[in-house]
């Protein structure tokens, strides 16, 4: 959801913190093992260590919660507008509103007029797209690697996510990420980004 909001910098910081902590831990382990100098840590170091950890935890929680709320705010705007402004019109929260029917094993996409396409959906480059995903058989997943968004859907519930479509025209993978039966491997579809021209070389991620 960070990509949809243009917050990939936040994610990079989190991955950086993770790397730093991992490297620090492993470096500490090897120094304790092989560095000739012995070091008796005072207990207060641990207190300080906990405070630092707690700070990182609170920072991560706040950051994630803010991202999450901003993301959800987009969906709420859409709800508030639904019925008044059609997707794509001026004032709409999203350029496209696509209903997805996930089933064993494949995806159907319904555009705003209820017209269905099987295992592929076409959107304009950079469009803000709202997917309302539903299933009526088992728990499925819905993942668009290029848009960096994943969700999991329970049968009988409509799960809404939105993405920012990639700018480059092409075909991007959509896949199920929850084991949903033997055809799970094949439960894939294309997100076709482009205008009317035939899609270019197949791309991923």
């Amino acid at each position: 959801m960070q990509q949809a909001l243009g917050l990939m910098g936040d994610q990079a910081i989190m991955i950086g913190i993770t790397f730093a902590m991992g490297i620090a831990g492993i470096a500490g382990l090897f120094m304790a093992l092989f560095w000739p100098r012995r070091w008796r840590l005072p207990y207060r170091v641990e207190i300080g260590f906990i405070v630092v950890l707690a700070g990182i935890v609170i920072y991560a929680d706040r950051n994630s919660a803010q991202t999450f709320q901003a993301y959800e705010a987009g969906l709420e705007t859409q709800q508030a507008l639904s019925g008044q402004v059609a997707a794509g019109q001026e004032g709409a929260a999203f350029d496209r509103r696509i209903a997805v029917y996930a089933f064993q094993w494949g995806f159907l996409f319904f555009d705003e007029d209820g017209a269905a396409s099987r295992n592929a959906v076409k959107v304009a480059p950079g469009a803000k797209v709202l997917f309302s995903i539903a299933a009526n058989d088992v728990i499925h997943g819905f993942n668009i690697p290029a848009a960096r968004m994943t969700t999991e859907l329970e049968p009988g519930r409509v799960q809404s996510i939105w993405i920012q479509a990639p700018q480059a025209p092409g075909k991007y993978l959509i896949q199920c990420l929850n084991y949903c039966g033997l055809g799970h491997t094949q439960m894939k579809a294309w997100l076709v980004v482009g205008d009317d021209a035939p899609p270019a070389a197949q791309e991923h991620g």
Partner: peptide
């Protein structure tokens, strides 16, 4: 689920021509 609007009504779905066979 049709009653609650989760899946489309009978006969409601039409076929989109937005996605051509050239995608596959």
């Amino acid at each position: 689920y049709r009653a609650s609007g989760v899946i489309p009504q009978v006969g409601e779905a039409t076929i989109s021509d937005a996605v051509g066979h050239d995608v596959f």
